[in-house]
Design a protein around this nucleic acid. Sequence first.
DNA 1: GTCTATATCAAGATAGAC
DNA 2: GTCTATCTTGATATAGAC
Lengths: 185, 185
Amino acid sequence: MPLLKTSKEEILDMALSVFRKNGYHHTSMSMLAKSCGLQKGSFYHYFSSKEEIMVAVLKNVHDFLKTNVFSIANESNLEPRERLEKMLLKLGTALLSHEGGCIVGNTTLEVAGQNVVFKGILKDIFEDWRLAMKSILKEEFSEGTAGRMAEQSVMEFEGAVMLGQIYETDQYIKDVFVRTLTKMR
Amino acid sequence: MPLLKTSKEEILDMALSVFRKNGYHHTSMSMLAKSCGLQKGSFYHYFSSKEEIMVAVLKNVHDFLKTNVFSIANESNLEPRERLEKMLLKLGTALLSHEGGCIVGNTTLEVAGQNVVFKGILKDIFEDWRLAMKSILKEEFSEGTAGRMAEQSVMEFEGAVMLGQIYETDQYIKDVFVRTLTKMR
DNA sequence: GTCTATATCAAGATAGAC
DNA sequence: GTCTATCTTGATATAGAC
């Protein structure tokens, strides 16, 4: 039984925190290594470049959201409004109460214009987010209206995370949830 | 008469482009120098650090917005709705059709959590933006409603810039303008 | 005011011992 | 799997000639 100081899963969890707080370019390999108790050199045993680990982090986030958040749109045992509420709540707890805001939004504005691989994953995340919202809203609104409302909710959410960073409050995000939910009934 | 290759004003203009496209940490002093035809060493004649020039760029943006955009809120010769339309239009042309989106939003998400000076200027910009919007909307809506609508417009706008980056379209921003304007009449 | 040259440092990444 | 040592590069910043 070998002595493991960490694992690929733990690294991805810690790396998410470090990237979210410091951004991509301002995060160094030694910061990532230190965050899970490794020396810089040891870190390369798990990931062979900074780009590689960022890709893994973003894919991990996407998987988490698909499995635990966006999937709520398909829970047919719940009423549409209950699904919407549950999904927004999950989205909130998944992205709130973390230092550094939202890794998806942060990475989009910092590096999506520089790296097509990052951009592709981020686009997939936004697309799934939009579609999950739309699929719920479609049960109460027309196709077009539901689509526009879904987009608007995503936009407002990311805008709220941004203002929340500046004014150091979660109130904007909570307000977006309430506003989105209110439109449903 | 000395031979000047550039000026502080030109540097600020070019630096804005470079920072907006590449972000703060991914922009190097030699990139900034090159953008206005200088050697890296010569650049330090004008600005003695990267932080200093970023501060100057952000203050420049703030001044521009105050003078040319937010001031429209006080043009008492125009009807409220005309002022709103004019301001949104100016905001659009000021921030659209540039590669890299919005320097305010980009810088907020990339470095506001790391640098209190940047964060202070960005906060002032958002505050003036919010107040300008609110001051117009207050003429048609209650204090509280106008405040909330103003915040929502700012959030949606920044969210639209983000989605616009991903999907490579200006349509989201245009939609936000229309949506904000529609509420006014 | 602009240039070249250079000092200094930190980052990404690799090599090889244990 | 983890470590230390090291290579290489590119960054910020300075010095001094023109």
